[in-house]
Nucleic acid binder design. Structure first.
Lengths: 262, 262
DNA sequence: AGTTGAGAATCACCTATGTGAATCCGTCGG
DNA sequence: CCGACGGATTCACATAGGTGATTCTCAACT
């Protein structure tokens, strides 16, 4: 495992795709991001990128495959706190901490770039606009975490699952990972869904069956097909605002703010 | 309400107290922070500092009293996502968003400073060390949020409440708000505890009684007294690491990182 | 002292979800 | 074609925690 796979990373670089929604990127900026992505390595499913207690000296960028952030309790129960899909960086500033307070694992084989913290700092120095976009992305991560807390704390089983599926669909759409048939990859076992939503595998199973029976989704082989997005969104109380995927690019907004300053 | 109360803010400024744990502050920096705090206003219990949907153009600093971050669902249920105690700032960078995705309310009368985003940016420009400390504080907020998700997603009622109480105790200790008798203010109704832990008022009540009966806590009039911290921490699976309140100041750590850079 | 109201405590009953297996099913290596 | 194994399903049963309403307490106000 872990052999270097120096691949080209054409224009379909998911990081560029994602950040490009926040700030319009110049050629130089795109080049810098592509440069970053060239050093990806292959990691195998089941391995951890970082483990709780490690001293984090780098940030990981997912180019392909899925990762997830989680915490484990003494009694073996586990809470999944985020999914990282292509284009996602695991907490940009986490290297300021002395030790990781959570782990990051891989749900599938993945192409991952390990970026030493120094390199991230350097990149942000050279490209302030990229820094803004990254900062913005990490704000969205925080907003997502808040939404998850709401989900687990207040919603019923069916709502929780429906909400999660809607979120994943929208996020994957942003990086262009929805198939023509409208399905998305979903490399999750029911156990992982359970650890995400704070329920049991058994109850996840029951809930999925209900969603299928109601014609909201179908789940072919490691994929998820949402048959009726509006209804699923309604069932889960989902509204994509917290993902901040549309709206004017951050640059304009910031300029407005600064303008009204003095 | 909301009359300006230009008060002196002696050395007991909770913000200085808190940030001082992260970076050793120079006289100029302390002065700048004190300056900020001089413009506090009185706000009354029950009012909202910001509401979901607002365009956030300022950050709030709590000097006295408690605030809380929450989201409300259509069906009226509410999830509390954070408590803000003296010395806490509500998300520093949130003004980058076009609209707030949550509200901030007051649990008690409070002294609050409203800091226009421009002023925060300016402060961070002039004092990079303060910027670091603020950034650090916001990282801790994120870590706390993750811990809450774990709490609500995986722990049983008693554990949830115990964990929450331990966290609040430690955070208040940092800003010197523990009385000699070991009790802390707790301006929360059982309903608010319920909306925090994802349970019902009825069940919160049952759980509190159990904790009292087991000799772990007592709850005199708007206060909380932890009778046996180690046992309560054990009951809640609490470990204060995620609050990052000890350990070397951020400055040293960052210097180390930068040193090992080139 | 009497009234009011917010919050705490109780009550009887209910159900969404958890437990702990067992069974089934498809895939993959041999 | 034959295990074997990681999931997905199912089952029978248990319970933590939810519902909705009532009552109690005590501090504030008249």
């Amino acid at each position: 495992m872990n052999e270097i796979s120096t691949q080209a990373c054409r224009g379909d670089n998911p990081l560029i795709r994602k950040l490009g929604r926040f700030v319009p990127l110049t050629e130089a900026e795109r080049e810098a991001l592509d440069e970053l992505s060239r050093k990806s390595r292959h990691h195998v499913q089941g391995s951890d990128l970082i483990e709780e207690g490690d001293n984090p000296r780098a940030v990981f960028l997912i180019l392909k495959g899925w990762a997830f952030r989680y915490k484990q309790l003494a009694d073996g129960s586990r809470q999944i706190m985020a999914y990282l899909v292509p284009g996602d960086l695991c907490d940009i500033q986490i290297f300021l901490f002395e030790t990781m307070d959570h782990s990051i694992g891989l749900l599938s084989d993945a192409e991952v770039v390990k970026i030493p913290s120094a390199e991230i700092l350097d990149l942000m120095d050279r490209f302030p606009r990229i820094e803004r976009a990254l900062l913005w992305a990490s704000l969205v991560d925080g907003a997502t975490l808040r939404e998850w807390l709401l989900n687990v704390g207040q919603r019923l089983a069916k709502e929780r699952v429906a909400h999660l599926f809607c979120e994943l669909y929208v996020r994957l759409a942003v990086v262009g990972l929805v198939e023509e048939d409208g399905s998305i990859p979903l490399p999750l076992t029911q156990e992982e869904l359970a650890d995400t939503t704070g329920m049991t595998t058994v109850h996840v199973n029951r809930t999925l069956q209900r969603l299928r029976k109601e014609g909201l989704i179908s789940t072919p082989k490691g994929r998820l097909k949402i048959l009726n997005f509006p209804k699923l969104a309604e069932a889960g109380g989902f509204s994509q605002e917290y993902l901040h995927i549309d709206g004017p690019p951050i640059e304009q907004r910031l300029r407005k703010h600064l303008a009204q300053l003095e």
